[in-house]
Amino acid sequence: MKLICYGVRKVERAYFEKLNKFGYDLTLVEELLNDSNIDMIQGHEAVMLRANCPANRVNLEKMKSFGVKYLLTRTVGYNHIDLDVANEMGFKMARVPRYSPNAIAELAVTFAMNLVRKGAYMVDRTRNRNFIIDEYMFSPEIRNLTVGVIGTGKIGFTSAKLFRGLGAKVIAYDLYLNEHSKEYVEYVTLEELNKKADIITIHCPYCKGENDKMIDDKFIANLKKGAIIINTARGELQDVEAVIRGIESGKIGGYATDVFSNEKEFFFKDMSGKEMDPTVEKLISLYPRVLVTPHIGSYTDEALTNMIETSYKNLDEFLKTGDCSNKL
C-alpha cells in the first residue's frame, strides 16, 4: 500500500517511520498539500493530510483521477475536506477523533502563566539588556485566581486538573455536564463564569451556525475587568476585531490564541516583510498583552504519536474490513 503524507515536518519523519508497523510504502512530504505538489500523489492509493491541506473539489477530482481510494486526516477537525464532494466521489475517509489532551491543556496553562506573570514581556526586556523592574511585571499568584473552563471534554477536563494542581479555583460551563469533571470544577452558567473568572480558557468544539465568533463584543462586555482569555480550540470561535477592542479598552487584560479562522493564509509560512490580514496583524501588534502561536497545540511527542498510530490503524482497518470505526 503506497501512502503519501503531507505536512510532515523534519522532526516528525522519524515518528512516521518508526510507527509504520503495517509496512506501508511511505512518501513523506514536508509541505502542506498545494497546487504545485498535488501531482506527487500519482501512484499512491492513500493520502494522509493535516489541517490546512485543502481537499476541495479541484484537489479531490485530481486525487480520484490518480487512483486514490483512501483519504486520511491526522486531525480531529475535518473542515479542510469537502465531505459532500469526497463522499460523492466514493473516497473512504477517516480522522483521528482524539489525541493526548495534555498537549493542548499544557499550552493553555503555559499561555495563562505567561500572561499572569508577564513572562514573555520580562524575557524580551532582559534580552534587550533592560533589567529594570516596572509596574507591569507585578502579578497575582495563580492560586489566588479563578479559572473558567468553557468546554469540559477531555481537553477541558485535563486543563481543569492542571489549573487545580496550581491551586486555582476552577469553575466551568458546558452544555453537557461531565461527572468526572465535578471533582475539579464547579459548574456555573456562562454569564456567571464571565463575571467571576480571572482567566477563561476555551475548549469547546466549533459548531458552524451555533457558536460562530462566540468571543464577541457581548461576551467581552460581560467579562470581569482585566480578565485573560485563552483560545486553543478553534479560530472560528473568536471575533478578532472584538478582541482588539476589548484589549484596547482594558476590558481584556490579556489574550492568547493558537488558532485563527483564516490561518491557512499565513500559518506555517514565513511572513516576514509580507502583507497579512490587517486585523490579525493588529492583534499581534498588541504584544505583550496578546500572545500568538502558529497552531502548535498538538506539536508534542505524545500527540504526534497518537495521530500517526491512529491514522495508520484507520487505513489498516479499511484494508482488512472495508470499514473503519473512525470513518467520516
Score class of each variant (00 low, 15 high):
residue 52 N to S: 11
residue 191 E to H: 04
residue 154 K to N: 15
residue 144 N to Q: 11
residue 289 R to S: 07
residue 102 N to A: 15
residue 240 V to A: 06
residue 237 L to G: 12
residue 181 S to N: 04
residue 265 E to T: 14
residue 108 A to Q: 11
residue 161 K to E: 15
residue 275 E to C: 02
residue 273 G to T: 08
residue 256 A to D: 09
residue 210 E to N: 12
residue 83 L to D: 13
residue 165 G to T: 09
residue 106 E to F: 00
residue 49 L to D: 07
residue 310 T to A: 02
residue 157 F to Q: 05
residue 148 G to D: 05
residue 156 G to D: 03
residue 183 E to H: 07
residue 82 D to T: 12
residue 300 T to P: 11
residue 39 D to V: 15
residue 73 T to S: 15
residue 20 N to R: 12
residue 93 M to K: 10
residue 304 L to H: 07
residue 53 C to L: 06
residue 15 Y to K: 06
residue 119 G to D: 10
residue 303 A to V: 02
residue 44 H to Y: 03
residue 269 K to G: 05
residue 86 A to R: 00
residue 33 L to E: 04
residue 47 V to A: 01
residue 230 I to D: 04
residue 118 K to C: 12
residue 282 K to E: 14
residue 312 Y to H: 07
residue 54 P to N: 05
residue 105 A to M: 08
residue 100 S to F: 06
residue 154 K to P: 03
residue 139 S to Q: 10
residue 2 K to Y: 07
residue 319 L to E: 08
residue 227 A to L: 07
residue 194 N to R: 15
residue 51 A to D: 04
residue 214 M to K: 01
residue 150 I to D: 05
residue 66 F to Q: 02
residue 174 D to I: 07
residue 94 A to F: 00
residue 125 R to I: 03
residue 185 V to C: 09
residue 321 T to W: 04
residue 317 E to A: 03
residue 238 Q to I: 03
residue 176 Y to A: 11
residue 125 R to H: 13
residue 214 M to C: 03
residue 9 R to A: 11
residue 35 D to F: 13
residue 311 S to E: 09
residue 240 V to M: 06
residue 159 S to Q: 11
residue 129 R to I: 07
residue 207 C to I: 15
residue 100 S to G: 13
residue 26 L to E: 00
residue 305 T to L: 07
residue 153 G to S: 01
residue 281 E to G: 15
residue 214 M to S: 06
residue 274 K to Y: 02
residue 129 R to L: 10
residue 18 K to L: 08
residue 63 M to F: 11
residue 294 P to G: 10
residue 1 M to A: 03
residue 134 D to E: 15
residue 8 V to W: 02
residue 93 M to W: 02
residue 236 E to C: 00
residue 101 P to C: 04
residue 28 L to R: 13
residue 173 Y to I: 06
residue 127 R to E: 09
residue 81 I to T: 04
residue 249 S to L: 12
residue 175 L to D: 01
residue 312 Y to L: 08
residue 304 L to G: 02
residue 321 T to M: 07
residue 60 L to N: 12
residue 129 R to C: 14
residue 25 D to P: 03
residue 227 A to Q: 07
residue 236 E to W: 10
residue 118 K to F: 15
